[in-house]
Design a protein around this nucleic acid. Structure first.
Lengths: 200, 200
DNA sequence: GGAAAAAATTGATCTATGATAAGAAAGAGT
DNA sequence: ACTCTTTCTTATCATAGATCAATTTTTTCC
């Protein structure tokens, strides 16, 4: 359950989320109207491969992951998301092609979701959102580049160490087999790595 | 050398590049003024790790790659760029932190470059650019996600086959050891994969 | 056209991780 | 508190790819 007993009033949260934009009161009201709150329990899957991706989600509390099922039925975790992070199958959200990814709730979550239809309308009505989301995409791109670099140049052990250093909260929250699937190794290999690291 | 004997007039190219935006003549003139043409020879390095990244480049002709040098001095190719593609160390371009990547010219190139200072000014003067670059970042993000998925879920042989299928022009243009470093394997492993594939 | 350099291939051996199986530990439900 | 399920660890064997070295092929330069 979220450590915040109740989510804040929607309008207050939207004000904080877009604080850097200095939007007018009317613009904030428009934005707040476009968001809806969605609560999910641990274990829920809120997107399945093949679905149309209607929403992106802002995580007010909880923990989620996106994952891909390969041809052999193995799960590959693409991203985790905790409080103050965003989550969707972004590729499918942008293109409106069927989802490639699943989204699973790893800890009870309160999410604020907004549809692509509303996003597209609001880009026209509140042009400052273009800049906000361009810069958000730049940061997301940078995180993926860092991930590609790590996958190309680091051993599994090094990648695990980076993960633990960069995301201690997530490391504590999620199961080891999810971490293994994020790192691209099996749970047995992760166990060996953890044993080696604890024997130093 | 470029298969186009001369680059088109700058204004014409900028018109085509931003055709979807239906910019005014004045806006196109402003944009064209911000771009400069840069010609490089095969073998040039136009960005080094540690540099401030002042420009992003549109490739009018030629071929380039970005690469990262790891702690052991090995090169990891992050992206290639051919005609009509963009290239930079984007993470450092956005953040203005020192470059992590190098950019090398693999075939004589004609590039159109624009500085971040000009970009930032033009975002304010031509707001339609915000949308153009947000959507460009969305597509770039999607390509990186596809790359992460492939790295997590495919064997080296599968990744090479996807590469050849997706980028036949690049496969013909660049050296095998660059392809190997893009795929995250050694040149010896790539040779063995190529032999296996040619014996089927 | 020839020499030198670069790129690519091949072979032998090694290593990190995968596959499989079994067992232990932790968590969930009653 | 107990039982069942889920998660995690460990052992053994297999494999994809790395490392190292040598050779061949291709490209570059004069």
């Amino acid at each position: 359950m979220s450590d915040r007993p109740n989510p804040p009033e929607k309008h207050e949260l939207i004000s904080q989320l877009y604080a850097e934009l200095s939007l007018t009161s009317d613009e904030l009201t428009q934005l707040a109207a476009a968001y809806s709150v969605a609560r999910y329990a641990k274990g829920d899957t809120i997107l399945h491969e093949g679905d149309t991706v209607e929403y992106q989600y802002y995580v007010q509390s909880g923990c989620l992951r996106t994952y891909y099922l390969d041809g052999s039925g193995r799960e590959h975790t693409i991203q985790f998301a905790i409080t103050d992070w965003w989550i969707s199958d972004y590729t499918a959200f942008f293109s409106q092609e069927p989802a490639l990814l699943h989204i699973e709730v790893l800890a009870d979550a309160v999410l604020y979701r907004i549809s692509k239809a509303d996003m597209d309308r609001l880009y026209l009505e509140i042009p400052a959102l273009e800049r906000f989301y361009r810069m958000k995409m730049e940061r997301a791109f940078a995180r993926f580049q860092k991930r590609i670099l790590a996958n190309l140049s680091q051993s599994a052990k090094e990648r695990y160490q980076s993960f633990v250093t960069s995301y201690p909260d997530i490391e504590q929250l999620v199961k080891n087999y999810h971490i293994a699937s994020y790192l691209g190794i099996t749970t047995e290999s992760l166990s060996r790595i953890r044993r080696e690291l604890s024997n130093h």
